[in-house]
């Protein structure tokens, strides 16, 4: 658990972070979202003490971070940034091995770990011997995230890790992030300026502006009950319904049934979002879809008038 209490950070006259309070539960992915210069990256860098705090407290599992040696603290936190920050003169394997080597792991243990991580991120084992400049943007960013997980730290700090990627690669990596987080359950602090990314990844989202946290809530609460006009505007007004619909899979709104095939010819995988279901209905000019499971067997039906209210069922 990470607790920020009355945390401030002052650069000369301006307050980059202004008396913020934030609790991030163990195993939770917390997104810090806001425009550039709102203090979200500074908050992240306060947590691993890259920037000294001016006042307030940062506690990790009830221990003040000031009690740790700064290096020991950082070795215990994964760190991934935009543009990967990979060391260009080291191979992928050496890059991933960085923190384990600093921790003095045995060679064998490091090698095993590298293989595990490449597999986890769906990377060819031959990638280990490559240099960063020989990788595609998506591969390099996967290695960047893999490196941050190398020593299996309980906490992961990520500063716009997918910011420099094209839309398609970014979505692929977001999905991978969700898949990996669902099994690893790390405590993640994820900084982004991309609202859709925040809604997609965050268990809870802290909206920041001018060094302050305006609202800290789950994605659906932020959409339905914005605490201020700023949050309201940030999350868009026109397509808010669509944003909400993209948060939930169709399985939360469908009617389970065995003989669904007769109802509709158009199908949708059960883990697709309600937004996708709506899109398919409009496109195929139909009022109902057959929901399929992972083995492509029909498991239910979702109708036009069921699409609303997915967040209340979840």
């Amino acid at each position: 658990m990470i607790e920020l209490q009355d945390l401030s950070c002052q650069f000369g006259e301006s307050r980059a972070v202004d008396r913020i309070n934030l609790t991030i539960n163990t195993g939770e992915l917390c997104v810090l979202v806001g425009r550039s210069g709102c203090g979200k990256s500074t908050t992240l860098r306060l947590i691993n003490r890259l920037i000294p705090r001016s006042s307030g407290q940062i506690r990790i599992d009830d221990q003040d971070v000031e009690q740790f040696d700064a290096r020991q603290l950082r070795l215990g936190m994964g760190y991934a940034i935009q543009g990967t920050g990979l060391f260009p003169h080291w191979t992928v394997a050496r890059n991933i091995a960085m923190v384990p080597r600093l921790l003095g792991w045995s060679r064998q243990r490091i090698d095993t770990r590298i293989r595990e991580l490449l597999e986890l991120f769906d990377l060819d084992p031959a990638t280990a011997a490559r240099y960063p400049h020989q990788l595609s943007g998506g591969q390099a960013q996967r290695v960047g995230v893999a490196r941050s997980l190398a020593a299996d730290p309980p906490i992961l700090l990520m500063d716009e890790p997918f910011g420099a990627l094209d839309a398609i690669t970014r979505e692929a990596l977001q999905n991978e992030m969700l898949r990996i987080q669902s099994t690893l359950r790390k405590t993640v602090v994820f900084v982004t300026h991309d609202i859709d990314e925040a809604l997609k990844l965050g268990d809870r989202i802290a909206v920041m502006d001018q060094g302050q946290i305006l609202q800290h809530d789950t994605p659906s609460t932020l959409l339905r009950e914005p605490a201020s006009e700023f949050v309201d505007r940030l999350f868009g007004t026109g397509d808010r319904g669509l944003k909400l619909a993209s948060l939930y899979p169709v399985s939360t709104v469908m009617t389970p049934t065995k003989d669904a095939v007769s109802t509709s010819m158009t199908t949708i995988p059960h883990d697709e979002s309600v937004r996708q279901a709506l899109s398919l209905m409009v496109w195929h000019d139909t009022h109902a879809l057959t929901v399929m499971d992972d083995r492509r067997e029909p498991i239910g039906v979702v109708r036009w008038d069921q699409l609303a209210g997915g967040d209340r069922n979840a």
């Binding site: 290096r71 940034i81 543009g83 990979l86 060391f87 003169h89």
Partner: peptide, 27 residues
């Protein structure tokens, strides 16, 4: 030497000497 690389080195727990010898100097 690219600042994000040095930043990453520091953030991941290298001390000043390790950063200089292992990252800055070879690059």
């Amino acid at each position: 030497v690219a600042s994000d690389v040095l930043d990453a080195a520091q953030a991941m727990g290298m001390n000043g000497w390790q950063r200089f010898v292992q990252v800055r100097l070879p690059l």
